[in-house]
Design a protein around this nucleic acid. Structure first.
Lengths: 131, 131
DNA sequence: CGGACTATACGACAATCGTCATAAATTGCA
DNA sequence: TGCAATTTATGACGATTGTCGTATAGTCCG
């Protein structure tokens, strides 16, 4: 089985880099640096990338301008944070969080349709797995 | 519009304390210490509480055994983290996050009903605020 | 070849975090 | 009143984070 589970804790700044890596499906240092929305020192990005590699969530290729690729999925990391948030903030209850997500936010017709579908699926699954 | 001071960034450990404060609606140092699930040094909790006060998210009463009370709501803090997560992980799209929240999780009939209502409300508001 | 760039390696540093120990001040009682 | 228990005040210290500067190694072109 995989030895590598238990994703390390990532700081806000590190998440910022991960986001770029996920979006671009990997990137060189300069690409990542350029893709950041805000101005950040080149070596700052370099340092973050190095730390991410040390933590094992990013792999550094051997190509010329080294290519950095995330070894974990957004969902994987996001899930961790989300679940933690769930525990910490609402004591594990999803409704308050979802409420916040959909309230005070503009949603498109498509999003609403997708959300409805999600709820329907959950409902269906619930009925099926009734204990 | 009140002093909408932007809530400071809270670390994981600090959130742990906030959670206790929210749950107990405020607490003294010893109460907070005792209410923590895991063993943590008494003064460690004291330090965290102090830092929370410095950050302005907790107020320290003048009673004898000083009473610490959160000055921000769980929603307020959670919202910040949630919005950040939203940006970082799914690029601002709520559906993936909600999907994770409802999928692979047991939901009660009540929760599903509440979720449905939330979506309905969002839909209604959307139609009304169409511009 | 010999610069001009580009890419990497290193190291520095202050701020924040996580954890406490110890000392001083207060309070509650016997 | 005097002391033990409880509260508070400080100070410490290593790990992590956020940000860079500088120095060295590689590459590419004229």
């Amino acid at each position: 089985m995989g030895a590598r589970r238990k994703t390390a804790r990532l700081s806000a700044g590190e998440m910022e880099i991960m986001q770029v890596l996920w979006r671009l499906s990997g990137a060189t240092l300069s690409e990542a640096h350029g893709a950041l929305g805000r101005p950040l020192g080149y070596t700052t990005v370099q340092t973050r990338l190095n730390r991410l590699v040390e933590k094992g969530v990013v792999r550094r290729g051997s190509d010329r301008p080294a290519r950095y690729v995330a070894t974990v999925e957004p969902d994987e990391v996001g899930a961790r944070h989300l679940d933690l948030l769930l525990e910490r903030v609402s004591g594990g209850s999803v409704v308050p969080l979802v409420a916040h997500l959909v309230r005070d936010r503009e949603l498109t017709r498509e999003e609403i349709a997708e959300l409805k579908q999600l709820i329907r699926d959950a409902e269906k699954k619930r009925r099926a797995g009734e204990k």
